[in-house]
């Protein structure tokens, strides 16, 4: 009597290794393909802005693109009074008209004109400097507190910050002592908030809710970013210094 035994095949070892390689290759290809795909638009540099403890003293509230908020064009330079050309001197001696040589007369006239123009230019420059000095003095302190003047800034970030701050004043509420929420906001080229993500939070639900409401409220007033690019920024919300209306 003999026993019938099924033939044995080689195991799945080799094909499993091949399969793993195939899957890793497929995943790598997908990642590579995604990198090849064009982005919806260049994402601006991310700015971390503390909504409460403002890094910018004068964030230039208002839309940079809204009509009426455009920067006023510099006043035109004061036009110098028209200089009357002096009449050429003429002498009459004993009924005869004395005339100088036309070449000598022209050279002297040119020299005098150059002197006069130089004087007028110097006056104009002094007036312009004076005007600028007055403007700066009238504006007072501007820019970042303790800023050196070399820090990068963004008008659109300041604008968003202002909108969020305004909206947050209306919605703020919290349960814990010192709540804190960091939200990353992505705005598309049409000014719509396409993504909101809470990155850090102390876990105060009421505060998170008020932040979310503030973002929804602020979204209604947001204009598209400059050059219609995708904007991404992280904003920190804290209750200090903000009063509830």
């Amino acid at each position: 009597m003999y026993q019938l035994v099924a033939r044995k095949d080689t195991g799945l070892g080799v094909t499993t290794a091949l399969s793993v390689t195939f899957h890793v290759a497929a995943f790598a290809f997908l990642v590579w393909w995604q990198q090849l795909m064009p982005d919806p638009g260049p994402v601006q540099t991310t700015y971390y802005v503390d909504v409460v403890n403002l890094p910018v003293a004068d964030p230039r509230a208002g839309s940079p693109t809204e009509s009426g908020n455009e920067l006023k064009p510099a006043p035109p330079a004061p036009t110098p009074p028209a200089m009357a050309v002096p009449a050429a001197p003429s002498k009459t001696v004993s009924g005869k008209k004395l005339t100088t040589s036309p070449v000598t007369e022209s050279a002297a006239f040119q020299e005098r004109m150059a002197k006069l123009e130089g004087k007028v230019d110097a006056q104009r420059q002094t007036a312009a400097f004076e005007e600028l000095r007055k403007k700066v003095a009238a504006r007072g302190k501007v820019g970042m507190p303790k800023g050196t003047g070399t820090e990068a800034g963004s008008d659109y970030t300041a604008y968003l910050h202002s909108r969020l701050k305004d909206a947050f004043r209306d919605t703020i509420s919290y349960q814990t002592q010192s709540p804190y929420v960091m939200v990353r906001i992505t705005i598309d080229g049409n000014g719509r908030i396409i993504r909101t993500r809470i990155e850090k939070s102390t876990g105060d639900k009421a505060f998170e809710l008020s932040v979310a409401r503030a973002i929804t409220l602020a979204e209604q007033a947001i204009v598209p970013p400059p050059s219609r690019t995708v904007y991404e920024g992280a904003f920190v919300f804290k209750p200090q210094g903000v009063t509830h209306k």
Partner: peptide
């Protein structure tokens, strides 16, 4: 439900 916002930006991701 926690954030209270039902906008597409919150729901879609």
């Amino acid at each position: 439900g926690r954030t209270g916002s039902a906008s597409l930006a919150v729901v879609a991701p």
